[in-house]
Design a protein around this nucleic acid. Sequence first.
DNA 1: TAGATTGTTAATCGATTAACAATC
DNA 2: TAGATTGTTAATCGATTAACAATC
Lengths: 216, 216
Amino acid sequence: MKKQVSTSVIKRLPRYYRYLGELLNCGVERISSKELSEKMGITASQIRQDLNCFGGFGQQGYGYNVEYLYGEIAGILGLNSRYKAILVGAGKMGQALVQNTTFEKRGFTLVGIFDTDPEKIGEEIKGIKISDAKNIKEFIEKEKPTMAVISTPRTVVSQVVRELTDMGIKAFLNFSYAEISPDDDVVVENIHLSDSLMRLCYKISAKGEKKSDNEE
Amino acid sequence: MKKQVSTSVIKRLPRYYRYLGELLNCGVERISSKELSEKMGITASQIRQDLNCFGGFGQQGYGYNVEYLYGEIAGILGLNSRYKAILVGAGKMGQALVQNTTFEKRGFTLVGIFDTDPEKIGEEIKGIKISDAKNIKEFIEKEKPTMAVISTPRTVVSQVVRELTDMGIKAFLNFSYAEISPDDDVVVENIHLSDSLMRLCYKISAKGEKKSDNEE
DNA sequence: TAGATTGTTAATCGATTAACAATC
DNA sequence: TAGATTGTTAATCGATTAACAATC
């Protein structure tokens, strides 16, 4: 069994993927870890270490073939998968998310949207009708989606997640303010908009302080 | 001058803030680092170390007063500030963002929204009219906003950021797929939805592999 | 006072960086 | 072949955890 890849490495993978996609778009054929490191603002050592967690994709004296490496990283990330996903909570945020994000390019297919609001039920988003949340169990049993995007009010998040876990959902993209405490065999990615705003606020405030420190 | 607080610590601050807010809501008056660590799934040591970057907020034998600590962290994060913010790019995502996120609670006030689409200009979001992006310079000179939420198509991001930086914007919340390479005195927080989806995809895929490894 | 729990120093662990032999 | 650059091992750095004296 391969040794576990650290989360630090995994966090960087999508970034590599984005940079390589950009290079590919620009028609760049090959790139050395040194060149890429300068573009990305990290060390060449780190790039080589990171990639070598998954295999040797480069060639001594040449560097890395951009198209090949791009494809390999897509494979590592599993982007060629078609994991079925549902959206739970069709508020403005949830709707915008499924409309804007290219689920298909990131390994997922949106197969269902659920809400409890009678006003919303029946509306169509991206060619998918918003269904009554009452029917979610039946739907999951039939379609067997892997992932659920959680975009409900925070007060119901923990209950919703518990129920969906019981119904067999294995992965959550958490868009709510609330924290998810997942079961052991369930994976979670959090997008806490509030946290990002707070961190940005901190950075601005801290910068201001530093400035006045210097002035003294 | 205080020593620089590490980014690892800063990343955790909003999470502490959320947990303390929750405790406050539940009427909990005091909490020890041990109790909190069990709730959050981290070590008590880490909590004490983190907090002591900013000062001693606890009391031996007692623990931490929830309300007091909550307030102190708000202060550290700068959440009582009223940094002026503008939204650049009023697509579905941008609109949802400013509608759902409580800017006010996170240290910001939304003062302007800009887009280039004539269809959108004049529409009102959260009581703020969408303005023509042509007028953005004039607006910034007058209102002097600190932060800009970037929610434009990725192709124009780098140019938009460069221009806004020249006009005096000091902080960016980047909601686009593109990477921002900020000037030295500019701060950035990225929310890359695609990256989150890719990481989730990786986690699902990797979990599957591990399972089959075990079965062999 | 005795018990509890902090603040803080020291020890450990893991991640990043540097160095270099292997090799294209 | 000579030059370039990888893959990989070793050294460094920083972050996390453990331990404990201080003290409420």
